[in-house]
Design a binder for these strands. Sequence first.
DNA 1: ATAAACTTTCAGTAATTTCTGAAACTTTAA
DNA 2: TTAAAGTTTCAGAAATTACTGAAAGTTTAT
Lengths: 185, 185
Amino acid sequence: MEMSPTVKSAVMHFGEMGSRWGFNRTVGQILALIVLTEHPLAAQQIADALSISRGNTSMGLKELQSWRLVKQHHISGERKEYFVPAGSIWVLANRVFEERRKREIDPTLSLLRDLMMDAPAEEQDEAVQLRLNEIHDLLESVTAWSQELQNLGPEKLDTLMKLGSGVGRILDFKDKLFMGKTPSQ
Amino acid sequence: MEMSPTVKSAVMHFGEMGSRWGFNRTVGQILALIVLTEHPLAAQQIADALSISRGNTSMGLKELQSWRLVKQHHISGERKEYFVPAGSIWVLANRVFEERRKREIDPTLSLLRDLMMDAPAEEQDEAVQLRLNEIHDLLESVTAWSQELQNLGPEKLDTLMKLGSGVGRILDFKDKLFMGKTPSQ
DNA sequence: ATAAACTTTCAGTAATTTCTGAAACTTTAA
DNA sequence: TTAAAGTTTCAGAAATTACTGAAAGTTTAT
């Protein structure tokens, strides 16, 4: 399974970026390869194409499945498992986003909650509590909002994004309309 | 400079999370310490509080300045440089967000542009081109939109976030109003 | 110009993360 | 029940990343 020059560049790049995106080089490369290949790929084909060990390939595929970016695809009559992207580009982007939120924000949110519980009795550092509170609230808003956005679904989200600077106008507008009877949050 | 137990837990946690957030343990710890301390801190104080070498502290501070999360604060009459957060929690969150966009999305966007330029002449893999295009467009929308949101400024952004599921309703609403004359873009 | 007070750099070391490949495991078919 | 075809695991090796501390550099005061 030879990679075309274009695919090769893209795969290499996704490898480089891999670590910034929360996984490692190999995982990034495998993802790119699967996404850019029209047909399902077997683990061995992936290992060959990327010149990596079979073991590493297996780990990488497991990781990608845990991120729900890649899924197995059984071809009837075949013994091997094949792999394909778990959805459209849009779905994949969403999954990365969500998964990262889980890994990057949730743990901090939970620590902050704990610290805010424990501390009042024990400490006199008011200012620190305030700061922690502020961080907590911000992270909580972001989390809630990102969930909200995901619930909108692709089409509406697209509308919203295409709206661009129009968002500002719509907000002003809404203020006028609902002035005084804004449903709290 | 002793850290209170609360500060200590938070600092440790930010250290752990550091790598997920795009910097390393030490950098995360330094950031937390500076954010949670009411008064400006000198490099040496930071090194002592965290029990890390002076050299490492210097690197960390440099990194945090390159992220624009921390800035120098000169105290008149003092020879040392002190360090303080570069702004409110909200500003800091924004900076992290923006900086990460630069490091995680922009390079890919530029690679995709290149691949889309080069390739048409050279290749027959239509499908790959389509995929790359799709990824490119998605990343571009996200980038444009995140810039849009930052331009809204804190208050409006806050309104928007607090709006929650209301966003959906507003969008329907807008469709009715501007039906047919939606500004194309 | 010198020294004191402080900062930065960087070569080498330590710690962490990733990768390999062989062994153990699983599944299917005959 | 065995062997063939495949997968997963994991101990150790390789590669990468982070940290230390000593040396070089900078700035300010005298």
